[in-house]
Amino acid sequence: MLRTNSTKRALVEYLLRHPDTIVSGAELCGHVNVSRQAVSKAVEGLREEGFPVESLPQRGYRFQSAGETRISPSWIESLLGDIPFGHPTLAFERIASTQFVVKEFARDGAEQGLLVFADEQTQGRGRLGRSWESPRGKGLYFSFLLRPSLRMNELQLLSLATGLAVRDTLEELLDVSATLKWPNDVLWRGRKLCGILCEAAIEPDRVHYAVIGLGINLSLSPEHLPEDLRQRVTSIEEATERNIPKNALAAAIVRRFYEEFQHLCEPRGALELVEAYRRKCETIGSAVSVLTGDEVIQGTAMDVTGEGTLVVETSQGRRLFPAADVVHLRRGGDVPFPEGR
């Protein structure tokens, strides 16, 4: 497990302010107020995290802005330094699931905002127990801990808020025009870019904690996927055709979600969240097939309620679905259109 400390984080913050500039060891020592030996040790720790810092003998250190290869806890925490989420940030090379780790920390009393990343997951999961392909280096796989003051029937709003945060960040940071599929898939050109999983420990009168997990496909190509997924999944690399700033993207999503989460706690926050979600959700207005248990219902998705419930007009009247699996159908027919309209 990798995590930051005060010296590493201070070095990152300083180097990020001087990208591609050689900074002397004496300058770093003075800024961080530690010895040259402590700076050298911290730099080695940053390299272990994957933070791209170059040592130049007799000259100093240089942050190479185009050199990132993995998630660096020091980098993430520096980018999130002014908000309470992301402290601490933990990064694992290979684990079963980031969800499992965060839930274990939650049961041990960890505070809201804990953030856990993995380079690779061996048991990545999506909704309804489905597996989520999580090969090394091909995606962003992370989970964070919430202790929300929400009622049990409002938990769906967390999924909506996360989907909005991902969708809006992709547009603002990478100019990717993504859309949303109820309840929590992020799509590009009808194919899935990101899946979101919200799990919670609840009692009838309270929510103990919630864990939000995200799997974002950065560069996984179709040939590395099972046959049945190849036409249903896309990647940010395909959507942008450019290098993806992993740490900046991850931190921006967490920051945007924090803003949505804070707003959700305000008097009109839930209403405004759902209004924004409706504008960006391509499920609304689509012919859909809804799978719930052993039942399959077809109709037209008409709306999302103030608690995040899907409203579907069927031949037998309107049906409400607080949670279900939805397939978009081609207009004018009932042929499933993979993960999008």
Rank of each mutant, 00 (worst) to 15 (best):
D119M: 08
Y141M: 01
D175V: 02
L164G: 01
S177K: 15
G126N: 01
R151E: 01
G137E: 00
L158Y: 07
S149V: 13
T169R: 08
I202W: 12
A178C: 12
V116M: 15
V102W: 03
D108C: 09
E93M: 00
R151M: 02
N153S: 02
G126I: 05
A161K: 09
R130M: 09
L160I: 14
K138Y: 02
L157T: 10
V116T: 13
E154V: 06
F105M: 05
L187A: 02
F100Y: 15
F105N: 01
L128W: 04
V101F: 04
Q121S: 10
S131W: 02
A201N: 08
R191G: 10
A178S: 14
S131Y: 06
A161P: 03
G137W: 01
A178Y: 11
V101C: 00
V166L: 02
Q123Y: 05
P148V: 06
R191A: 15
R147W: 11
T98Y: 03
D175E: 07
S143P: 06
L158V: 13
L193R: 00
S177P: 13
S97N: 13
K181G: 01
L174Y: 15
F100W: 11
R107H: 08
L150S: 11
W188V: 15
R94S: 11
C194P: 05
R151P: 10
S143G: 09
E111Y: 08
Y141I: 01
W188D: 07
N184M: 00
D168V: 08
K181M: 12
E111P: 15
D168H: 04
C194M: 09
S134V: 06
L157G: 10
F92M: 07
W188L: 14
L164M: 01
